[in-house]
Design a binder for these strands. Structure first.
Lengths: 344, 344
DNA sequence: CTTAGCACTCATCTCTTTAGAGTGCTAACG
DNA sequence: CGTTAGCACTCTAAAGAGATGAGTGCTAAG
């Protein structure tokens, strides 16, 4: 039905169009390495393919785009043996094997509810913390002043951080500390590391280690960081942004949505400022430019009196503050109640 | 700092703007029932409020919108006792109490993976079926010809459907059928109801019930419906639609996204046509106009040889068919494998 | 202090013009 | 006879030029 050359050209056009989303001109096909014909020749073939119904012209002086029939032909003649690259498959399987902890499910679920009820975007910061514990700790001196701290968690995640060492700490001392930590803090949940450091190790450290206080500071610093980095972010209702008339410009929405994908930035923004309770950040009070026209309302939930995570609603500055604040208030309390019931 | 009247006007402007997203003019404030002043008076106050920094003008001849300071004032002076309407709170708590079954988590998780890996929107149809079973069945005659069938599931969901009764069925007969169903089909998973109807009840029905065949038809009809309605839909990556240049027009995206919210329509579209395997529906081959520029690629996963659900990717007609088809193929097989392992 | 009236401003919509990409056709070439 | 160069032609997208109208600020009267 189609000549070999026509098939090749059709394939080239579909491929190009899939990549570029722009009508494909004869010149650009001609310039591809795998097609050895001039634009004029391609044009002739394209005219034929159009007549046969495989291509379309959006308008007279545009390039061609595949018609439905063209796509259909392309799909039906795809190499059936084609398989995604092995790296991709490995990734797919790896993600698929992951599981959410019961805790995370609750958070994710809450995110969904929030976005549905408010018609805004909800952002929930949940403590990954809950299902990861310490498997291994290492502190490798790089030189006299700096060392790399390595934390391996029960889920196999490896975190590392470069830290400044206090002056004049002999290697033997460091080894002692590391051994102590590994023996005493093994299997302790990440989020409890910092407190356990003091409650369980304080005395022993004081007895055996010379620079006790300064080393304590270093460790404190390391675990503090681990705590923040391990939080997990759940989003829901991002498309609700689109329904707001102030964001009818796609580019504006895009900058916001892109920022929502940037987990670290978002995590920082969600961090509660001084004290808990409901917090409202209006427009530029969010310290990111893309949120200049947004307001972020957050509330914290907690376990045993300690703030664990944050739930938040992102909307236009023109937001139904009263309603959203009330809903956040209720849900954060319910979450807190549920958690304390759960982990008791 | 602000006079009572200024506060009132500021509040009115913020409220109006929250609702309308349009700059608020003096006239519209004046016309509100709760403000008894003419536009000119309002204008004077508005000029003052602008000077104080609570309001802004997008341009000289537009109405006013609240500034950040204006929102801040509004928020800080919100009635602290305000609480969302009780109906809303009840709804919130109800949703929050819901739980996803293990099965559903897997599906939802798969949806996320798919959208992340493909950068398109993923739609997964999972069998709610798995964790709901029949708790109670009722058939209430309305008159001689019609009756309401009520199905209560183990999760407390209540489904009802109006059905046509065959002529001349005495009430006593109906009662017998209902009793038989309740005694024999109690705790049977919804998805097995239809087959069990025949395997377990066929003979007994035939013996005791006069209009056996016609009543069977009615029941069949009822359970068929329940089966379809109980499938659960998971979406992920809806915002990926935005990154496609063909959908840079917000209105176009909106029609698509709106359709994605319509669960029943979507469920129907995802239904596999004749036979399983990977299916590609290009443009208008999807029987909904809003998807004229979209392609939907679907694959089914199954349990014990029976198709249970569908996983799909929605993207522009200009889609990376080969890659997506390969990924769907792998994931659908992995899902099938996982399920058979799970439910054995 | 409040309100009516009127001139003024500026965004938005529509219409027109312009620039550029890509075609179709014709004629020449190997 | 298939392939290629050249050129006129077409049509969109971008830029510019009025017309429209909502809403203001100011002034003067109530």
């Amino acid at each position: 039905m189609l000549t070999e050359r026509q098939r090749m050209i059709l394939n080239a056009i579909v491929d190009d169009y899939i990549r570029s989303a722009e009508p494909v001109g004869s010149r650009s096909i001609s310039k591809r390495g795998d097609v050895g014909y001039s634009p004029a020749t391609i044009r002739n073939e394209m005219a034929d393919l159009e007549e046969l119904g495989f291509l379309e012209q959006p308008h007279t002086s545009a390039g061609r785009i595949p018609s439905h029939k063209g796509y259909r032909y392309y799909v039906d003649h795809l190499d059936p043996a084609y398989s995604a690259p092995p790296g991709e498959i490995r990734l797919l399987r790896k993600f698929f094997a992951e599981k959410l902890s019961a805790m995370e499910q609750v958070i994710q679920h809450a995110a969904m509810i929030l976005s549905h009820m408010t018609n805004y975007t909800s952002i929930l910061l949940g403590p990954e913390v809950f299902h990861t514990s310490l498997r291994h700790f290492q502190l490798l001196p790089l030189n006299e002043e700096t060392a790399v701290a390595i934390i391996v968690t029960s889920t196999g995640q490896v975190e590392n951080k470069t830290v400044q060492l206090p002056p004049d700490v002999p290697v033997s001392e460091i080894e002692k500390v590391v051994n102590l930590l590994n023996s005493k803090l093994m299997n302790v949940p990440i989020y409890k590391l910092k407190t356990r450091l003091y409650t369980e190790l304080g005395q022993e450290m004081e007895r055996h280690i010379s620079n006790y206080e300064e080393i304590m500071k270093v460790l404190d610093n390391i675990f503090l960081d681990g705590e923040a980095d391990h939080q997990r972010l759940f989003l829901s209702g991002t498309t609700n942004m689109l329904t707001q008339p102030e964001f009818k410009d796609v580019d504006k929405v895009k900058t916001i949505l892109d920022l929502l994908e940037e987990t670290p930035t978002l995590t920082k923004m969600m961090a509660p400022q001084d004290g808990g309770g409901i917090q409202v950040r209006i427009g530029t009070e969010n310290d990111h430019e893309a949120f200049a026209n947004c307001s972020l309302i957050t509330a914290t939930y907690s376990l045993e009196g300690e703030a664990l995570g944050t739930i938040g609603i992102l909307g236009p500055t023109r937001m139904e503050y009263a309603r959203v604040m009330s809903i956040l208030n209720i849900l954060s309390k319910d979450l807190t109640a549920m958690l304390s019931h759960w982990y008791k």
